[in-house]
Design a protein around this nucleic acid. Structure first.
Length: 470
DNA sequence: ATGTTC
């Protein structure tokens, strides 16, 4: 694969074969070690009907289903542009929420063990069923799919301000619950308010360093402050929706004369019935994901308040696995695009009309979950950023789960983290070992490359005090 | 990511 370094942290793959646009990869040479397979996926995505600009990849690019994780692709809706479930991923609406406590680390110190034990009891996690909410019936699930965080807050599990600080005000309006299969509903019924497994987590963190005082002040965070970060998605419901609609599109694709180099890129035009059905189901999963994070926030707030009298206010909630209809300039004119972000975070610049009033001048908060025992980051969107206002989403795996678990024992890893002052509440030691920090790229390098590529600016670095894992 | 292989 020929990569042309056209600017610092920016590589181009010139169009060849059926590519409609170039590939553009934002990264350092080091981060692109062993990236050959995922770069082929960048090339494959560049062949999609209606794609505009480029097939983009963020510095945390790695191999995914059809599209690379860390991929951004926008298609022109009025020009036959397609939507592809593989461009969103299986964990629809997976995302991150950051809450800021009304105390610094000293104010938590004596209560940390009690808080962690409380979270251990209150936060459902791991594979399979279990959630903080026990639904009273299918009607309630439909209200979640339509109302997202807005419904959870309306039921008393949060405050109005939570919605202001949540992407899309806590819910998207275009959810179509009829496109959510019986099987997807069944799987979603028992998992409302749960973390799931793998790299999903709830962490108690401390703001270790602030790089941009103005943005940090607007976001409501300061050095030494305690925060809570929640990383989770739409569980089995989103997974089932992706499975269902990939199958539907795979069958329908030929009717639209679409040929893709990899079946996992199954897609149909945004304006086709199949495209609309997928987007309606995806929106329902997006709302489920937001409600999920809202209910986990509510559970965490109760623990913090009961154990330590600490209150938590929402900094922001943003997804890194979604397709959204947005307007962006393309070759000088504003176009309506379907922007796929898969393992990539929306990063609106200062002045964007969709930002809350009190954040509009500084830009959108971008939340980057790191790995256990390392760090997480808060970034901010910048003007003039490429890739349709998108940036990275996390560290990116380098070791398979199997290899990670062979590299370190769960007991040994827990001891290592505890001796580094990080309280750990894992559900399984095997699951903990699979998430050992060595299994991931250095999140600091990913963030530095993203800023170097002018996709965002670094605002703050957060370090873990306690980890709740699936 | 995922009732970790329909």
């Amino acid at each position: 694969m020929e990569l042309i370094e056209e600017a610092p942290h920016r590589f181009r793959i010139d169009p060849h074969g059926p590519m409609r646009v170039p590939g553009v990869v934002f990264a350092s040479r080091k981060l692109l070690n062993d990236a050959e397979k995922s770069l082929e996926q960048v090339v494959n995505v560049a062949t999609l009907p209606g794609i505009v600009g480029a097939s983009y990849a963020m510095p945390d690019i790695h191999w995914g289903y059809g599209f690379p994780i860390g991929g951004v692709a926008a298609t022109d809706v009025a020009d036959g542009g397609v939507v592809s479930p593989g461009g969103v991923g299986f964990d629809i609406s997976c995302g991150v929420r950051l809450l800021a406590a009304d105390t610094d680390q000293k104010g938590l110190e004596s209560a940390l063990t009690e808080v962690m034990d409380g979270l251990d009891r209150a936060i459902p996690r791991g594979a399979g069923p279990g959630g903080v909410w026990h639904l009273t019936g299918p009607g309630q699930l439909e209200r979640i799919l339509r109302g997202g965080s807005r419904y959870a807050v309306g039921e008393g599990h949060g405050v109005e301000r939570d919605l202001v600080r949540c992407e899309d005000g806590g819910a998207v309006a275009d959810a179509d619950v009829d496109q959510v299969s019986a099987r997807a509903r069944e799987r979603g019924l028992g998992q409302v308010g749960s973390l799931g497994s793998a790299n999903h987590f709830l962490e108690v963190q401390r703001v270790d360093e602030v790089y941009d005082e103005t943005a940090a002040a607007a976001f409501g965070i300061t050095v030494g402050q305690v925060c809570v970060m929640i990383h989770c998605g739409s569980r089995g419901l989103g997974h089932q929706i992706c499975t269902d609609h990939v199958r539907l599109m795979d069958r329908a694709m030929t009717r639209y004369g679409i040929k893709v180099p990899d079946r996992q890129l199954a897609c149909t035009p945004v304006e086709s019935p199949e495209g609309q059905r997928y987007l309606g189901a995806m929106a329902a999963a997006a709302n489920y994901g937001r409600a999920n994070r809202q209910l986990l926030s509510d559970a965490a707030r109760k623990v913090f308040h009961r154990a330590a009298g600490i209150r938590l206010s929402l900094v922001y909630d943003v997804s890194h696995n979604l397709a959204k209809i947005e307007t962006h300039p393309v070759a000088g004119t504003r176009r309506t695009l379907c922007v796929h972000r898969k393992g990539a975070t929306r990063a609106f610049p200062p002045g964007h009309p969709d930002l809350p009033d009190d954040l509009r001048e500084v830009g959108q908060p971008v939340l980057i979950p790191g790995t256990m025992g390392t760090a997480s980051y808060v970034l901010v969107g910048v003007a003039g950023g490429d890739a349709f206002s998108s940036t990275c989403h996390g560290a990116g795996r380098v070791l398979s789960r199997h290899r990670a678990a062979r590299a370190v024992g769960g007991r040994e890893l827990r001891a290592r983290l505890e001796s580094a002052g990080i309280a750990v509440r894992p559900r399984s030691l095997r699951g903990l070992a699979e998430e050992t920090p060595e299994a991931y790229k250095d999140v600091s390098e990913v963030v530095a490359a993203s800023e170097g590529a002018r996709l965002c600016r670094t605002v703050a670095r957060l370090v873990p005090l306690g980890v709740v894992k699936g």
